[in-house]
Amino acid sequence: MPLIRHARHDEVGTLTAIGLRAWEGATSGLVDVASMRRLAENAFADFLTNNWLSVSLIEVDGRPRGWAARENFDENISDLWIDPDVQAQGLGARLLADIELRISNDGFETAKTKTHAQNAAAIGFFRKHGYGVSWLSTAYAPKLDRDVEFIGLSKPLAEADTELYGR
């Protein structure tokens, strides 16, 4: 049975490896993965070292298999990575539901995230779970030395009260 819990600092290496494997799949065809691998690995390690308190992970049989983060503890899901070996098994959906509950419990009415516009798998995943496109933008990515299109997605978390007063 999958378990969702807070990450620990001593899991940074394991979570970096998961993020890196998932990133390689998500960016294949968009960037030269081989030449960017070391940079991406360092970025994951730095992020997780500095922000592990904002990370929730999902484990199966005592082994971390994915993680999600709210870097600023706000309504923005900054990361959601599932090990490619266990993708399409419902772990991402469970982790997403957990992070949405945390966002809602912290008083936010909407969950938000972003990805590069060519990441069809991530866009499809979030759309399947009720997210709609809220913006599209192009920004210069210095590490890639080119413009990259990003897409913002959002989902209302609170159900609208449709009953009228006094029925």
Rank of each mutant, 00 (worst) to 15 (best):
M1D: 11
V12H: 00
P2C: 09
L15M: 03
M1K: 10
S104W: 11
V133A: 10
P2I: 08
V33L: 11
R38V: 09
D147T: 12
R63F: 05
G90P: 09
G124A: 14
L53S: 12
V60G: 03
A160I: 15
D98W: 07
E11V: 02
A121G: 06
D46P: 00
P64A: 03
E24M: 06
A88G: 04
E159T: 14
A97S: 14
D85M: 10
S154M: 13
R37H: 12
V12P: 00
A40V: 10
R167W: 08
N105R: 14
E59F: 02
T16C: 03
A158N: 12
L95D: 05
T16G: 00
K114M: 08
Q118Y: 07
N50Y: 09
T113V: 13
W23M: 10
M36C: 08
R167F: 12
Q87W: 05
N42A: 04
T115S: 13
K155S: 11
E149P: 05
I58R: 06
L153P: 02
T27F: 09
L15A: 01
L164V: 07
A141Y: 05
H9C: 09
A111W: 04
D147S: 15
L48R: 02
T49G: 08
L57K: 05
S78F: 02
D147P: 07
P156N: 14
Y165C: 06
L80H: 03
W52T: 02
S104E: 14
R94W: 06
E159L: 15
N76V: 13
K128W: 05
V33W: 03
Y165E: 14
M1V: 11
A69I: 00
P64F: 03
I18K: 00
